[in-house]
Design a binder for these strands. Structure first.
Lengths: 158, 158
DNA sequence: CATAAATTTGACCATAATGCTCAAATTCTA
DNA sequence: TAGAATTTGAGCATTATGGTCAAATTTATG
């Protein structure tokens, strides 16, 4: 498992904001010398915290091993408030309103099941949430990817 | 809606592979002059096909408006074959094995419900898939994000 | 089909960024 | 506290960038 210090984090956050940011700007952001930023960046890329393609950061490498999909049943009148509350939780990575019964689908991540339980309790305390169902993602067989669709787009849709 | 030609696609695919690729390399990949690659990149960034600077692609902007989550019930013995078959489908963006009954969770994207139906039929034809349940994502309230978790990581876990 | 509009190209240039080395200073670890 | 690892600043050669421009090419439109 990879551990990050303040400098790594600042570099990662800057890269998320703008993946094409210059190394010299990274150095400024992180408050270190350009040389340092450059070697940190190299190390992050080698350590595979920074994934090749697909989505930005590999959170598994950082110790966030538990991934869960949570479906919430929500009182329609309070939907906006529920969404707002969910967004405040850093462990909530994604929120969609889904068909069915005005349900809400949430992607949750946690370091372990204990932390997950804690987050789930937090969610259930939100006013307007009437029920929840949690599904654990045991193993990822395909990480988010868009390349094949784009290649397909090239050959067909046009 | 944004339309892409061959050059745009090659640039996007190269950026997905390596978001920090140089403009001159992009030009080579796409087989155009550096000047052209540079202006195409600018245009892609302006058009917001490229989200937040370069890493992620906004498929909605390209006309992929239908997002669905599909849960499959799978014959355990044929799980590997099912996964392999699913991966062949470009519209399948993500696959996770989930708890429950050895189920498989799939993120699907399509241009319209008609195309979605076609993909769903394709999935149901896969040997080993015994049942499926589709949930439509009507509206995204929070697109995949990791920054808040990283910031939280900075303040706590260390 | 002809013309206007848009895009691409290659060339050029000044500036900035990069990758590299190195020795000294600093911080971390055992 | 000694040794290891990291950071720093400086310098240097090479490459990338962003910009302009006129000519060539492609695309759109009447």
């Amino acid at each position: 498992m990879v551990r990050l210090d303040e400098v790594d984090l600042r570099i990662l956050l800057a890269l998320i904001r703008d993946p094409r940011i210059q190394v010299s700007e990274l150095a400024d952001e992180a408050g270190v010398a350009r040389n340092t930023a450059q070697s940190r960046l190299r190390r992050l890329q080698r350590s595979e915290v920074l994934r090749e393609g697909g989505r930005d950061i590999d959170l598994g490498v950082l110790g966030y091993d538990v991934l869960a999909f949570v479906t919430l049943e929500v009182n329609h009148r309070e939907l906006d408030a529920v969404i707002t509350a969910l967004r405040q939780i850093p462990n909530v990575l994604e929120i969609h309103e889904t068909s069915g019964r005005g349900d809400v689908w949430v992607r949750l991540i946690a370091t372990d099941t204990h932390q997950l339980q804690s987050v789930l309790r937090q969610i259930l305390r939100i006013k307007g949430v009437t029920r929840s169902e949690t599904t654990f993602a045991l193993h990822s067989h395909l990480a988010y990817r868009t390349a094949p669709l784009l290649e397909h787009y090239a050959e067909h849709d046009h």
